[in-house]
Computed example of a mutant assay.
Amino acid sequence: MIRLKKYTIGQYPLISLATARQEAIRLKAQITQGIDPTLKELTFNEVAQIWLKHKSKQNLATFKKIESRLNNHIIPKLGNIKIQDLKRDRLIKCVLELELKDNGGDGFETKTK
Rank of each mutant, 00 (worst) to 15 (best):
F44T: 02
V47H: 00
D85Q: 13
L17S: 12
M1Q: 03
G34I: 10
K28S: 14
L70M: 13
E41A: 14
A61H: 12
F63W: 13
I25D: 15
E23A: 15
H54C: 01
K64Y: 01
S56E: 15
R3P: 01
H73T: 01
I2K: 13
P13I: 10
I2L: 08
I74E: 05
E23F: 11
K28V: 08
E46Q: 15
L27C: 09
Q33R: 15
A29R: 14
K40H: 13
D85T: 02
I31Y: 13
L17D: 11
N45G: 02
I74N: 04
I81P: 02
N45T: 03
I25K: 14
T8M: 12
Y7T: 06
L42R: 09
I75P: 01
Q22H: 14
K5T: 07
S56I: 06
Q30M: 13
Y12Q: 10
L17W: 07
I25L: 13
T8F: 06
K55R: 14
G10T: 09
I31C: 11
D85A: 07
G10H: 11
A48L: 00
K82L: 13
I15C: 12
I50C: 00
T43G: 04
K57H: 12
L70W: 02
P37K: 14
V47F: 02
H54R: 05
Q33I: 03
L39V: 05
N80R: 06
T32I: 11
S68M: 06
L60R: 09
T38F: 09
E41Q: 14
K55D: 05
